[in-house]
């Protein structure tokens, strides 16, 4: 799967989980850029992302993501 496809799927998750259709994420997006994205909703985002791509992030991976792009790289590595 291409990065752009992964990003598009993630954007849907972000909109649904954060309940805001106006959200558009890019590879450089971080929690600072989006009001609804905090440490609590981040748990929702991670769980929903894991479900969609049928993968599991480990604790260290989750703790180290600096932005959406790093998550995408990690997803891409896991789904091949």
């Amino acid at each position: 799967m291409e990065k752009t496809e992964i990003l598009a799927s993630m954007n849907k998750i972000w909109r649904d989980e954060l309940d805001n259709e106006a959200i558009t994420i890019t590879e450089s997006s971080t929690a600072n850029d989006i009001e609804e994205w905090d440490s609590l909703s981040n748990i929702q985002l991670v769980v929903a992302t894991e479900k969609l791509f049928k993968i599991r992030f480990n604790s260290a991976e989750i703790a180290q993501f600096k932005n959406v792009g790093e998550m995408i790289d990690c997803i891409k590595a896991k789904i091949g």
Partner: peptide, 16 residues
């Protein structure tokens, strides 16, 4: 129970 959520955030029960 989600071990990752417990380790990273301290919540003992899974979101589901």
């Amino acid at each position: 129970v989600s071990s990752t959520v417990y380790i990273n955030n301290g919540f003992v029960f899974h979101l589901d």
